[in-house]
Design a protein around this nucleic acid. Structure first.
Lengths: 231, 231
DNA sequence: CGCATTATTGAAGGAGTTCAACCTTGGTGG
DNA sequence: CCACCAAGGTTGAACTCCTTCAATAATGCG
């Protein structure tokens, strides 16, 4: 599969890089199309590649010993993922599943150290990607420690509508299929609680939702709720 | 304050670097002694430096809008911290407080990009540090999502005893003063619950504890508990 | 020695889970 | 083309783990 350099150019990772360097990187990469529901890699699998999401959307999940699933991250276009090498791990700590049809670039893990050491731009970008993820993770920890479920769900929905929102006539729609179960796995609760809360929000006119979809009607109303301004 | 290059050499960050390069880095750094209870930087403060902990131990806390505190990280010797620059943030997202007398090296934030771009070794180390932190954060998220308080506390105590344990006659002591409140802020619960659980563990002979101290007597017993093998 | 900080423990209450039953939706194969 | 059924969603009721409130005790610093 061939990738158009101009598409790639627009991604932050490459924007400060010379044309020649971009070509070098692209020549070493292989592109991969992943259909909705398919996985790029599975938890525990040998980490032979690291990836860049070109288009689409992925979720990265981890399964605990007793079979419970948690969504640790949503991958948006332009982000690096699957860089287990960077953590000096032989295997992937989670499973990456496409929630929409997606395209990813893959490089062999052996090239990671070489990329980072030889190209400062890549190093800085990689660090920024990880930094943003680290902040997200800390935000989530803070929320899970201190906030009740309703506020956590509000934050999660607001974040998704910002990172993956599509403007519609009546509000902002989250641009990929997302189930109650998914939201529960992102906020550390159960699908039952998520369902109850979304229903109550719908009654209040804050959101509109259906099977695998959520549309934010009243962004500022939801923000108030997220910030703890209880009715 | 002067720093001995041989001390620094033993840290992973510098171990693959040439003597000349180590000197260059040390000449640009300023060393800072931080006494127990003092802060290296405060949440919201302008991020003018990034740091490396040479000795001692720090906790990094965040305070939420409504005044609740959360410990987002414990910094152990040899680790980078306060690299807000890397996240393209003008300010520190948390407060770093010494829990034991500590020594840290500080570099001006402006040097970060230069360090990373020019020295591949530093870049790879920085990425590994962040990667490890990211994994820790994901582990914590997973635990908070799926495990009950007792198991979370068990995991936290085990982790601390591995990362900061000092062998004593009757077990492994956590090598810095740690209160019930601290443990609560690390596991997303209240000091009351922590106190109750530690008391019950003490009765079972798993730990021994006093004011600001915890000693693990039965590591494997506690591990069993952490893994969910209920009595 | 006095007092602030830290810790313990009981009792009451509540937010959210668990269990259970039922309803909706949309894809697919007869 | 539409009937069927699996996957996703809703909602009630019971229960429980943990928090919150409250009061008292221990520890160690100045």
């Amino acid at each position: 599969m061939k990738i158009d350099p101009t598409v790639v150019r627009s991604l932050p990772l490459f924007e400060r890089m010379s044309d020649a360097d971009v070509d070098t990187f692209l020549n070493l990469a292989s592109a991969r199309r992943v259909l909705q529901g398919e996985t790029v890699f599975k938890q525990g699998q040998h980490a032979d590649s690291f990836y860049l999401l070109v288009s689409g959307r992925l979720k990265v999940t981890q399964v605990t010993g007793d079979g419970q699933q948690v969504i640790v991250r949503v991958v948006h276009p332009g982000e690096l993922f699957g860089f287990a090498v960077a953590l000096q791990r032989p295997d992937y700590p989670g499973t990456a599943t496409a929630v929409t049809d997606s395209v990813a670039l893959a490089w062999p893990s052996e090239l990671w150290a070489q990329f980072i050491e030889q190209n400062g731009t890549i190093a800085v970008s990689a660090i920024q990607t990880m930094g943003r993820q680290l902040e997200d993770a800390h935000t989530r920890i803070r929320e899970m420690s201190t906030q009740e479920v309703e506020r956590r769900i509000a934050h999660a929905i607001l974040r998704l509508s910002l990172q993956a929102g599509r403007k519609e006539a009546s509000g902002v729609q989250i641009a990929f299929p997302i189930s109650r179960q998914d939201i529960a796995e992102m906020t550390g609760t159960t699908l039952h609680t998520v369902s109850r809360i979304l229903s109550s929000w719908e009654a209040q006119g804050l959101v509109e939702c259906g099977r695998q979809k959520v549309l934010v009607r009243d962004f500022s109303g939801l923000s108030l709720l997220a910030e703890g301004a209880r009715d």
